[in-house]
Structures are given as structure tokens and as C-alpha cells.
Simulated scan of single mutants.
Amino acid sequence: MRRTFKWGFIGVMVLIVGLFLDYTLPQHDVVRITDTYNRVTPLGSLNRLFYASPDAGTKPGTAAPDIRFIAAVRPNGKVIVYRNEDTGWIWPPFFKFNSSNLQAEASAMKSTADAPRWVMVTNYGWRIPFLSTYPNAIGIRAVSGPDVKVFPWLNIFILVVLALIVVFFWRMWVRFRERTLDPLIAGGQERWDRTEARAENAAADVKSWWRRIIRRGR
């Protein structure tokens, strides 16, 4: 039971970390931009977490935010819509402050199916239709065609750094456990064994005393 709980807990933690990284790490999509627009988007309690802060320098209000969107089409014909929000100084740490400029760049790169102009949109996040969430575009650049691929150097670097951090803290934990916790646990076990032995001896003495009383009574 204990082993099952342990591996179940580890599995849940790995799943949570994997989903967090999948949401946060940048992705690169080759698309054709078809439209750019602004839309007042009321945010609810379920999807507010997936939206970034207001534009840097503006004061958050209580009204529904006016969010920029970029509509696009993938090479396979499937549509994709990106939101275009500043991330500011908060998480994820892309330090994006140029959503207005990015919207202007996206508008200038619009094209039609007859004369496609392919661009690469760097983004993070998920498209969840029933929650009305969209990936956030953080960069746009023109590419030569729909088959352009980008090797994820940044993602690999981030994953390697995270792995090194995990290994470092794991080694610290192992050393702390060997030097501090294990001696305490061993000492506590020894004290428990001595206490248990004394309790057994006391119980044996009580039984012996009670037997002597019974014999005298007879």
C-alpha cells in the first residue's frame, strides 16, 4: 500500500510538471495570417488564470479587457487563433511588452490563400475551446515556406537546466537525509526498541508477581 501511494504520488507530480512545461515552453508554428482584431473578452473564474496581465503601464480595471487576437491558418488548412497580450514581469518570464507592435507586424503580414505569405509564430499556451483560451503569441517572423522547421534549442536548454537543478536538490536531500534524518531515525528506533524491551520486562514482572500472589492465596 505504501509503495503504491509513493509511486502514485510521484506519477501525479510528474504529470503536473509535464503539463506545466508543455503550457509554458515556447512553441513555433508556421502559419498564414488571415486577420487581426481586438475583442472585448469577459473573463470568468475558470479561464482567467490562462490570460496574461494588461498591457505594461496600464492599470488593471474591473471591466472586461480588450484583447488583441491574431487569426491564422496552418499549412494543413486547420485554423488557429492566438491572443496577443503582454506578459510583463510575471510568469512565464518572456518579458513581453510589445503587444501593440506585434499586432502591427501581424497585420502587415496578412495574406490570402492565392498568394500565401508564411510566417512563424512563437507562442506558448493551449487552445481550449470550451474555456475560450488561446495560445499567446510572443514573436512573429517571415519564413520561406510552410515546411520550415525550428530546432527547439531554447526548450532543450531550459529542460537541461531544470534537470540539473532537480539533480542538485536531490543530491542535497540525500546528503541531508544521510547526515541528519537517518541518524535521528536510527536513534529513535533504538530508543523505541529499548522502551519496548523495558515494557515487555515490566509486563513479565507483573505477570510473575500476580502468579506469586495467586499461589499464596491457594
Rank of each mutant, 00 (worst) to 15 (best):
K78M: 03
V79K: 15
I80E: 06
E85R: 05
D86G: 02
G88R: 07
W89H: 02
F94I: 02
F95W: 06
K96E: 11
F97G: 02
N98K: 08
S99P: 02
N101D: 15
N101A: 12
L102A: 03
A104M: 11
A104T: 11
A104K: 12
E105M: 06
E105A: 08
A106S: 12
A106I: 04
A108C: 03
A108H: 11
M109H: 14
K110W: 04
T112K: 01
T112V: 09
A113I: 15
D114L: 14
P116W: 04
W118Y: 15
W118D: 07
V119A: 04
M120R: 15
V121W: 09
T122V: 12
N123C: 10
Y124Q: 08
P129T: 05
P129M: 02
F130D: 09
L131D: 06
S132A: 15
S132R: 15
N136M: 03
G139T: 03
R141G: 11
A142M: 14
A142R: 13
A142D: 12
V143L: 03
V143K: 06
V143H: 06
S144T: 13
S144M: 04
S144D: 15
P146R: 02
D147Y: 10
V148H: 11
K149S: 13
V150D: 15
P152M: 07
L154Q: 06
L154I: 00
L154K: 11
F157K: 08
F157H: 00
I158K: 09
I158W: 03
I158D: 03
V160P: 05
V161G: 00
L162R: 00
I165M: 09
V166N: 01
V167F: 10
V167I: 13
F169R: 00
F169H: 00
W170D: 11
W170N: 09
R171L: 13
R171Y: 06
M172F: 06
W173V: 02
V174A: 07
F176M: 09
F176K: 00
E178L: 14
E178P: 00
R179S: 04
T180I: 11
P183E: 05
L184K: 04
I185N: 10
A186R: 08
G188L: 14
Q189C: 10
Q189H: 13
Q189F: 15
E190N: 12
E196T: 11
A197M: 08
A197F: 07
R198Q: 14
R198F: 15
A199N: 12
E200I: 10
E200G: 03
E200D: 12
N201E: 12
A202G: 02
